[in-house]
Design a protein around this nucleic acid. Structure first.
Length: 1100
RNA sequence: ACGCCCGUAGCUCAGUUGGUUUAGAGCGCCUCCCUUACAAGGAGGAUGUCGGGGGUUCGAGUCCCUCCGGGCGUACCA
């Protein structure tokens, strides 16, 4: 293949060629070997809901940066690729399409057909995701790509479930969950978002049952969801309304006293309100309290159900009406009340689709919002509606269906997070086995460094966060510290089915089947629980004993889980005969992604892991360990802040549980990408960008360069987005519309083109509404393209001069000044890049690489050596320049590779052809592909501080001379005669660098002497005690003005320091070194001022 | 309501444990230059009461308090 570089930088052509080479050569393949240094990154698996966006690009590039860096450092590097089935999100998307395209629901086509459709969708998404990732240069091992629903992952899911179930950590319970009425499933807290809706606050009158004299006619309660009254099981009042009121008033008085001027009015108003309540509401509450103690009841209207008035301090006398309706099945707080007063019971009045169920009497079948209106109207008709107030309500919505979430009491599966009596055995059966207080506690211990030492006495790994350990660990700890049980069941069809056969069984029947069932239940690979009506959970043996005893109940719940999935089919019919059915629900997606760091490596048994055809086997091979032993635990998880609670926590927990060790030791949290308005970027909002659009426009390297540059630390990043206007006419220039300032259009994700005054659709969803689609871009990426262009051209220049460059051993100290200088600067750059990557600050790393390359290599070194490549130049000098240039290019390409891999890989091929052997004192190692080349190390022999200082001084002169040239408008081509007035070190340095300086600042002739004189037409350039006179350029007045200005500045600075040094406290209290430095500065400035004044005097 | 983060040049961001006089970078802007690698380039230049106020200190963009503005998280909302 021709590796000759084209004239112009063309990222598209070059990148696709490089991608093909990498893939053909399986350049990213990871195989266990003898190396003990490993680097393992588990990609936070993108879900198959749709395409990747800018946030993924950030995540991918950050991982690739670390991966390529470590790979080049010689680590055995694994980057695990794959995708997540994302149960609810994917099913929601496919169901939505089903509805839109075929106008069918999932129930119309059935479970099997729906799952098949989702599989198709997932396949398409995966393909697109892989294309996007490969387009970005993502260097993960494609031969190990996994999917959370594939055979390898599925087996691990089952094993994990089985173990937790067997250990009693997974249980089925009747709990209040977040219910999505549209998708008809429980959803996690993480899948909710708050939205403010305009709602109403209804005050309802509940009549008393058998009202007695002196009692109020009604108990008034308030609610925003009146239809839930159908499920009320009590009304609560505070245990001591008067006391609570008095206390609240006292507290408010304190607040008023301590309030700032601004808060005062509000505080006083609140106090006034409380006092008013004390007069008007409290007496009633006191009465109701007494009635509650007397066991009086309410007759719940519409359903005519007597419900008790109970005493519970959840009812706050200062709020609402002071009394609270209690609906345990539909409100978290009421649920808590029920747990304190179990006798009141629960009544669930909602069906799974959000309509009122049979317990709602005549409202049955009505949607909850219709029922709300009807309930209110009916109450009103009966005179039971006190009043209605308008109120803004912040309410949970499902992120998946965008509908209002209902708190819903239902039977769900949970993972027990809190501590367990006797502890939890972690890493059972491994060499790292230990006992933890509970699952959540184990994960907390992992970040606290509080896990017990390994059996051999070495400390167990600890999880650390970067780049801000304290901040992120706190987020992790706070979330985990609640130890809230994790609801893992979803009423979906897409996902891992919960592998439990269960059912209510008559004890009589259970005992009858015992002879047949018993032997199975005692097997190691079968876990079973029998739950008594009082909630006691017993293992089969204990259960049978108990059920044969005197106090046996008549009915129990039986749950059975097989470790081996094939047993489901084998024994399913038998169990069905006994009345046990496989649970219809599926597991929360996070259950499978939580074990991703070890499921992908073949856990529980890599030797038998069923990978797909053509994939890397996970078992041991050629005497090398299996993938799990070799690659677990991993190194670093790279992700965004919001994932800490979703993933990091669960991965740590399940890694510890299954393997007794953390899945990774480091967590790198990168920034969130925001749009120009500071809003989190997402494709669904229309403020997002598809990485492939950027790649098409600017190239993948440009994308990567900018993304690295954006990652500065913990700071989120604003990336202003522009729409490419679809309304430009042929021949007209492309027009970009800034979306931060553009007016929004009629729908979410549409914007008005300010010139055409037409709406554009940035999310491609409003074709039906006739809105023109538009692509998004960001001109921030131009910077990256410019950088790549510069690198390309610098390499082109180098390559023009590197034909047949050889290698001979060179002593760096004997090289030309500029050669020694660039090597010294290179060593410095390598060290800085390394340090910054280690510190997880890519922007600082890339800035160091860029500064070296652009500001030193291009701006100075390449210019300085040009004369040595011209015809007639000294042959040895030329050869050395070539060898040094080749060596510097070699190291620079390596150093840049993790940032801009495509371009550097391309240039590397050409460099190797032109100069097959490269190095300075010793020859560098070589590698066909740059991906596999060794990372550069800063050679201490290249350091040359004295030379760096000399060149820095030369550059300082050069800039000053250029500035004078610019000021006097000397044409670039005009060479000037310069006389330097200098002695001592300044003169020595000038002598050493004179030819370089002449070359770089356009001097035809330089003389250096202590008594050099200016000519009347000279411009004067002053550096410290030395001066340069540039002959024949000056405008006397301008020169005077410039020198006067300079003198003024100097006097100002001198004055400042004199003042500082004149301050007795500064001199006595500041560190001696600081004072000394100031004195030195003062000395230098005074010297300089004398020089300037002298020059002014010379001008006359 | 509480907790965390942020507010530095027109824009996007650096600024390490307080200490080099006059606070940096990139983009944008102004002047000049198509110099044989690169106009996606080169040379030079301008631009900030570091959100406001107060305090600690010899010294504050950096530490403390307070207010204002923005983001995120958690809770509450009968």
């Amino acid at each position: 293949m021709s590796t000759e570089l084209p004239d112009k930088y063309d990222p598209a052509a070059l990148e696709s060629a490089v991608t093909s080479r990498w893939l053909e050569k399986r350049a990213f393949q990871a195989l266990p070997d003898d190396r003990s240094n490993r680097y393992v990154v588990m990609m936070p698996l993108p879900n198959v809901t749709g395409a990747l966006h800018m946030g993924h690009a950030m995540d991918n590039v950050m991982q690739d940066l670390l991966i390529r860096w470590h790979r080049m450092r010689g680590d055995n590097t694994l980057w695990q690729a794959g995708t997540d089935h994302a149960g609810i999100a994917t099913q929601a998307v496919v169901e939505k399409r089903l509805k839109e395209i075929d106008n069918k629901t999932r129930h119309d086509i059935g479970r099997e057909a729906l799952v098949e459709r989702i599989h198709d969708w997932a396949d398409q998404s995966q393909e697109r995701i892989v294309r996007q990732q490969q387009g970005m240069g993502t260097s993960c091992d494609w031969d190990r790509a996994r999917f959370t629903m594939d055979a390898v992952c599925a087996r691990a899911v089952r094993h994990t479930f089985f173990r937790m179930f067997r250990d009693g950590l997974i249980y089925r319970g009747n709990r209040l969950v977040n219910w999505d009425c549209a998708l008809q499933t429980a959803v996690a807290d993480d899948e909710l978002y708050k939205a403010t809706v305009q709602g109403k606050f209804y005050y309802l009158r509940y009549p008393l049952q058998d009202r007695q004299d002196g009692e109020p006619e009604h108990v008034i309660v308030a609610t925003t969801r009146p239809e839930t009254m159908l499920g009320d099981t009590a009304v609560a009042v505070h245990s001591d309304p008067a006391g609570a009121m008095t206390q609240a008033i006292a507290a408010q008085r304190d607040k008023v006293a301590g309030a700032s001027d601004k808060e005062k009015a509000a505080a006083e108003a609140e106090l006034e309100r409380l006092l008013e309540r004390e007069r008007t509401v409290l007496p009633t509450l006191v009465k109701i309290n007494a009635m509650a103690r007397g066991g009086r009841k309410i007759l719940l209207p519409l359903v005519d159900r007597p419900i008790p008035i109970i005493i519970d301090d959840w009812a706050d006398p200062t709020l609402g009406t002071g009394c609270v309706k209690i609906t345990p099945a539909h409100d978290p707080n009421d649920y808590a009340v029920w747990q304190r007063h179990e006798e009141i019971g629960t009544i669930n009045v909602l069906a799974t689709d959000g309509t009122i169920n049979e317990r709602g009497g005549s409202y049955r079948g009505q949607d909850r919002f219709d029922a709300r209106l009807n309930v209110v109207n009916d109450l009103d008709a009966k005179g039971l509606l006190e009043k209605i107030e308008d109120r803004e309500i912040e309410i949970d919505h499902s992120d998946r269906s965008k509908t209002i979430i209902e708190p819903y009491l239902s039977k769900q599966w949970f993972v027990h997070m809190a501590d367990v009596e006797g502890g939890v055995l972690m890493g059972e059966g491994t060499a790292k086995e230990f006992r933890a207080a509970g699952l959540a506690q184990a994960a907390l211990d992992a970040t606290a460094g509080a896990l017990p030492d390994l059996p051999d006495g070495t400390p167990r790994s600890q999880v650390r966060f970067h780049p801000d350990q304290d901040r992120y660990r706190k987020m992790y700890d706070v979330w985990l510290g609640e130890k809230r049980d994790w609801c893992i069941s979803r009423q979906l069809w897409w996902g891992h089915r919960i592998p439990v056969f269960r059912g209510e069984m008559a004890v009589e029947k259970l005992l009858m089947v015992e002879p047949m069932l018993g032997p199975h239940l005692s097997r190691d690979d079968v876990a079973a629980w029998v739950t008594l009506p009082d909630g006691t959970k017993l293992r089969p043996a204990d259960a049978f004993a108990h059920l044969k005893g005197p106090n046996a109940p008549t009915e129990v719940e039986v749950q059975i889980c097989f470790l081996d999935g094939s047993q489901d089919d084998a024994l399913g019919p038998v169990l069905a005969g006994a009345g046990l059915e496989l649970d219809p629900d599926v597991l929360d997606t996070w259950f499978s992604s939580a074990i991703w760091p070890h499921s992908t490596l073949g856990w529980p048994d890599p030797e038998t892991a069923k990978v797909n055809a053509g994939q890397t086997p996970l078992g041991s091979k050629d005497g090398h360990p299996n993938s799990l032993d070799y690659y677990y635990p991993g190194s670093c998880l790279v992700t965004g802040r919001d994932i800490i609670t979703l993933w990091v926590v669960r991965m740590v927990m399940s890694g510890l549980y299954n393997l007794g060790d953390v899945p990774f030791t480091d967590v790198f949290l990168h920034a969130t990408i925001l749009d120009g308005k500071g809003v989190r970027m997402s494709k669904s909002k229309g403020n997002g960008i598809d990485p492939l659009d950027i790649i098409e426009r600017y190239g993948a390297d440009a994308l990567r360069y900018v993304v690295c540059e954006l990652q500065t630390g913990t700071q989120d990043i604003r990336l202003p987005v522009q729409a490419i206007s679809p309304f430009t006419k042929d021949g007209e220039d492309e027009r970009l519309v800034d979306l931060a300032t553009a007016k929004e259009g009629p729908f979410l994700g549409t914007f008005i083109d300010p010139v055409a005054k037409e709406p554009m659709d940035l999310i491609g969803q409003y074709g039906g509404e006739g809105i023109t689609p538009a692509k998004a871009t960001s001109d921030r990426f131009q910077v990256g393209a410019a950088f790549c262009n510069k690198l390309f051209n610098a390499a082109r220049f180098a390559f023009l001069n590197l034909e047949d460059t050889g290698f001979t051993t060179l002593d760096p100290t004997t090289l030309a000044l500029e050669d020694r200088w660039i090597l010294a600067r290179l060593a410095h750059a390598i060290r800085t890049v390394d340090e910054q990557l280690a510190a997880y600050t890519p922007s600082a790393a890339i800035a160091a690489a860029r500064d070296f390359f652009w500001n030193e290599l291009c701006d100075w070194y390449l210019e300085m050596i040009k004369p040595r490549f011209r015809a007639g130049a000294d042959a040895t000098s030329k050869a050395q320049a070539q060898q040094v240039l080749a060596a510097v290019m070699d190291q620079t390409l390596r150093l840049m590779h993790p940032f801009v891999p495509f371009l550097t890989e391309t240039l590397w091929t050409r460099l190797r052809e032109l100069s097959p052997r490269r190095g300075i004192a010793t020859e560098f190692s070589d590698s066909e592909l740059l991906v596999h080349a060794l990372w550069p190390t800063a050679d201490a022999g290249w350091d040359a501080p004295a030379i760096e200082a000399e060149i820095a001084a030369m550059q300082d002169w050069c800039v000053a001379i250029r500035e004078a040239r610019a000021r006097y408008q000397v044409a670039p081509k005009e060479r000037l005669v310069a006389r330097f007035q200098a002695d001592g070190d300044a003169a020595t340095a000038l002598h050493a660098t004179a030819s370089l300086l002449a070359n770089m600042s356009g001097l035809s002739e330089t003389t250096i002497a202590a008594d050099a004189q200016r000519t009347p037409d000279s411009a004067t350039v002053i550096r410290g005690a030395a001066k340069a006179f540039l002959l024949g350029v000056v405008d006397l007045e301008a020169e005077k003005q410039k020198l006067t200005g300079e003198a003024e500045k100097l006097r100002g600075r001198i004055g400042g320091i004199e003042k500082k040094l004149g301050n007795e406290s500064f001199v006595s209290k500041a560190p001696a070194a600081v004072v000394e430095r100031e004195r030195g500065n003062l000395e230098k400035l005074r010297e300089q001022l004398v020089g300037v004044e002298q020059s002014l005097a010379d001008l006359g």
